[in-house]
Design a binder for these strands. Structure first.
Length: 869
RNA sequence: GGGGACGUGGCGGAAUGGUAGACGCAGCGGACUUAAAAUCCGUUGGAGUAAUCCGUGUGGGUUCGAGUCCCACCGUCCCUACCA
């Protein structure tokens, strides 16, 4: 009997199944080994800004597809969720609206938790935590002190990037184009005592580790490699000619990767903040003025103003290492960086563009020493462009005639023999500055005592908890302003002492959360047995914007904690996928104001789409397709979409329209298409006569339409499986759509028993294949079939190879590469037969009239190409 | 300046070196409706009545065969940047 068709209503169905999953507690994951292989599925945890956006929907939908699929494949899946909850926005809210950062953050978490739960994600919510929970950051303080003990943490006075608006120090990575990554304010240089982590100790390990990450995008590995920036070269000292400046040693140490060009040297340059420059500045107002000018430009303006090179001749001269009579001037150059290499360089203008620009500006000699293969040594000159290519060394004494590579080795050997320097490896990577002069972060658990110095907070005093009674009425850290918080007795001598008021960079919080998820209530930071069961994360998903910062820091901390014996994994993330953004078309009024999508009405005139303002009918300009942002007013709120179409349609659309690594453009038409699919799928299940859980008699369905449907069903299994395995969700969804069309062409109404049997099988497979994408719909369909239990617990379907492969193939027949006909043959038909059939084909013979067949290429089960003229 | 990715219908995009344009959107025609929406059916790269021809940024090359591989160029986007 057929039930009456009822339109699928996600508003009833979706909450019902979410409740059913929750009541059955299906997503709770045990740490006990139950014999199933483990799979750790993790998406980058969200910052609790207050509400989820479409980017979250896409990110978590992807993870959920993989998680549910792996579950069905028989894996024990760990799929947790938490909150990256420290950070500036909470303090900004406190300043702007007078709310407490804590209350603001936890309110946001509560709101976003509800929204994420509405997505129907297969999350084990019992493991949830926020990084601002004292239970979490107290454990972070615990391992921080272990790293301090190991010497991985240190303090130093450093020139730091100071954000004058946010009143905080920024890491190099947080300075973008000389601006603070959050405030956008021009960053200044300041000297402060800061806390650092010795990430550079791990530079080589982090570099080598990249080669083991074969399930990471090449792009991300390359970005990290460049960021670490290992280079091999030579450190050498140029001795001062005449009296050495006081306290500056025998000479100036420089670093170079081009020791082969030493004979092309025409000057040395030191950074404006080089000790020698500072000493000279103290004695000479002219130098002081120049140094001040360089500093004013800072790291920021240099680029904007086209990197104008500035220099000042100090009057000091040094001796060339290969020629005691050769003197080189020492300049101060604004383009020399104190924190790379030694803060001093030798300039070889002929073979370095930057040195050439400098030499041309200040009239310094340009002396070529590398000769391109086809150049004449007598006439070769360097004009406006430095020659940086390969060649033979000339004008260079003992290096003459050598290749660039051989000359490098020879020069290093000679310098080392003369004890003037040695070969060296230098990294671009700097140590990680981790202290922030902020309130809403993890307090650094250290006490400053006048007599004992730095004293770690005793273990039984952890966590060092942030005080709640703070004020934000002045710039700077509220912890510093707090009347009592920082006043403590020294744990060692009992005298008066003060707490450290700096807090940790929030990237510290996100550098180990994946390990804490293994056992979020453990008494120690990481339950080693649990972490060893789950780590590494098998599949990590997040935005490409974290390619360097977060992913490098997490790799570093994982190694540091491993060396501390706290876990066994060397790398935290075995597989990484970086998904694209969600974009939307933009709309502008004639006066340039942006208009929200919900205020736009569309019509078509002569096939051209026209946008109008709903209220007034004013014609709007269609703008670019851009990342959803409030400023462009092109944001679509997930909750509005859930309300209009249901969660499944929204999930399905973000998975369907573009490859997951690329941006997806949100369109109303697109989500409506996904919505149509949802309803059509339900209609197919709803129109199928109830089988009462009886297995279909598939022996009936061995020919005709029924067999075709069965073949399509079994092929579909393979396609959808591959699409999920290979992160090609859009193709998988397209196959599901295609299959629905086939199913609709064999409707239940008036169907034979054979077709009905094939349909029952098809529906039973379909419910399981759509389950990762549209889990609520899948449960409703599963129940409608009368199948046992919930589809969330059903195993992934297996394809019958006999049905998934065709017994016959249609072979196109080409003549000179153009398709002229086709022949249908049994799979595996041999070449001679295929050839005969092809040549006999009427469509083919017409085109062969008047031509001589020169060659017939037969690719078995694929194609025939006849070469004729 | 350095590094990377990409370029296919009106749009998003499919295509192990083997029938280019799957699937979806938009469009067009029709059914249902008093009407609209929704739904359903059909159609849809371009030119041509048709046979057929032309088509994957441009120009070469390899191959029986190229969207796919190689070389050069044009264009777009992203990352990074005075790194010695």
């Amino acid at each position: 009997m057929t039930r009456c068709m009822a339109r699928y209503n996600p508003k009833d169905v979706e909450p019902h199944w979410r409740k059913a999953w929750e009541e059955a507690d299906v997503f709770r994951t045990s740490n006990d080994d139950d014999g199933r292989p483990k799979y750790y599925m993790l998406e980058m945890f969200p910052y609790p800004s207050g509400r989820i956006h479409m980017g979250h929907v896409r990110n978590y939908a992807m993870g959920d597809v993989v998680g549910r699929y792996k579950r069905a494949q028989g894996f024990a899946v760990l799929h947790p969720m938490g909150w990256d909850a420290f950070g500036l926005p909470a303090e900004n809210a406190a300043m702007e609206r007078g709310v407490s950062p804590r209350a603001w953050t936890y309110d946001n978490i509560a709101a976003m938790r509800e929204q994420l739960k509405a997505l129907g994600l297969s999350i084990d919510w019992s493991r949830e935590f926020a990084t601002c929970d004292p239970e979490y950051y107290g454990q972070q303080q615990r391992w921080f002190l272990k790293l301090l003990q190991r010497g991985l943490v240190y303090r130093k006075e450093a020139t730091v990037n100071w954000d004058p608006v946010d009143m905080t120090v920024l890491a190099n990575e947080q300075v973008i184009d000389g601006k603070g990554w959050r405030s956008g304010a021009t960053v200044e240089k300041r000297k402060l005592t800061q806390w650092f982590l010795r990430i550079t100790d791990y530079a080589d390990a982090l570099l080598e580790g990249l080669t083991t990450l074969d399930r990471w995008p090449d792009k991300v590995r390359l970005m990290q490699e460049n960021w670490i920036g290992r280079s091999r070269g030579l450190r050498l000292t140029f001795h001062y000619a005449g009296a050495a400046p006081e306290d500056q040693g025998e000479g100036l140490e420089v670093y170079t990767t081009r020791p082969d060009t030493l004979f092309g040297a025409s000057f040395l340059a030191i950074a404006p903040d080089h000790p020698l420059a500072e000493q000279l500045a103290a004695a000479d107002p002219k130098v002081a003025a120049f140094v001040a000018e360089c500093r004013r430009g800072g790291t920021s303006e240099a680029e904007i103003e086209g990197a104008e090179k500035l220099g000042l001749d100090t009057g000091i001269q040094v001796v060339h290492p290969f020629d005691p009579d050769w003197r080189l001037p020492v300049w101060i150059g604004n383009f020399v960086l104190m924190d790379y290499g030694t803060g001093a360089i030798f300039g070889c203008p002929a073979h370095d563009q930057r040195d050439l620009d400098f030499a041309r500006k200040y009239g310094l000699p340009v002396r070529p020493v590398v000769l391109p293969a086809d150049a004449d040594p007598a006439s070769f000159e360097v004009g406006a462009e430095a020659y940086v290519g390969p060649g033979r060394i000339f004008n260079s004494g003992f290096l003459d005639g050598l290749t660039v590579e051989n000359a490098k080795s020879a020069a290093i050997e000679k310098i080392e023999a003369g004890a003037q320097g040695q070969g060296a490896v230098v990294y671009r990577l700097r140590d990680w500055g981790i202290s922030r002069q902020r309130y809403w972060g993890c307090p650094i658990p250290v006490i400053h005592c006048k007599s004992c110095g730095l004293v770690p907070a005793p273990d039984d005093s952890l966590p060092v908890v942030l005080p709640d009674d703070v004020t934000f009425d002045r710039p700077g850290s509220p912890l510093l302003h707090h009347p009592t918080w920082r006043l403590v007795a020294c744990p060692t001598c009992g005298g008066e002492a003060e707490r450290e008021t700096d807090t940790l960079d929030t990237f510290m919080d996100s550098s180990w959360y994946f390990a804490r998820f293994a056992d979020p209530t453990a008494e120690e930071p990481i339950n080693k047995a649990a972490a060893d069961r789950w780590l590494p994360v098998d599949q990590y998903i997040g935005g490409i914007e974290h390619a360097i910062l977060h992913l490098l820091y997490a790799r570093f901390i994982t190694r540091a904690l491993k060396d501390e014996g706290m876990l066994s994994a060397e790398e935290p993330f075995a597989g990484l996928f970086t998904q694209g953004m969600v974009t939307h078309e933009t709309y502008r009024r004639q006066n340039g104001d942006w208009v929200e999508p919900s205020d736009v009405a569309f019509e078509t005139e002569g096939g051209v789409r026209i946008a109008r303002l709903k209220q007034t009918g004013e014609a709007l300009t269609l703008g670019d397709i851009e990342k959803m942002s409030k400023s462009k007013k092109n944001v679509v709120a997930p909750e509005d979409i859930f309300e209009a179409y249901g969660v499944d349609a929204a999930r399905l659309f973000v998975m369907s329209d573009s490859p997951p690594e690329r941006d997806v453009q949100w369109t109303t038409g697109g989500v409506e298409g996904a919505n149509r699919f949802v309803h059509r799928v339900w209609a197919e299940f709803d129109s199928q006569p109830e089988a009462g859980g009886q297995a279909p008699d598939l022996s009936l369905a061995d020919n005709g339409q029924a067999l075709e449907l069965r073949r399509a069903t079994h092929k579909l299994i393979g396609w959808v499986t591959d699409s999920i395995e290979n992160f090609r969700f859009n193709s998988g969804v397209a196959r599901l759509y295609e299959f629905l069309n086939i199913l609709r062409a064999a409707p239940a109404a008036g169907a034979s028993d054979a077709v009905l049997a094939a349909r029952t099988e098809a529906l039973e497979v379909l419910a399981r294949l759509v389950a990762p994408f549209t889990p609520h719909l899948a449960e409703a369909c599963w129940q409608r079939l009368g199948a046992e239990g919930m589809v969330v617990n059903a195993p992934w379907p297996k394809a019958d190879p006999a049905l998934a492969t065709d017994s016959t193939v249609v072979l196109p027949v080409q003549i000179n590469g153009k398709r002229r006909g086709e022949v249908t043959v049994a799979k595996g038909t041999d070449e001679a037969q295929v050839r005969a059939l092809a040549l006999a084909d009427s469509g083919v013979s017409v085109h062969l009239a008047g031509l001589t067949v020169r060659k017939v290429i037969v690719v078995q089960d694929r194609i025939i190409n006849i070469v004729a003229n």
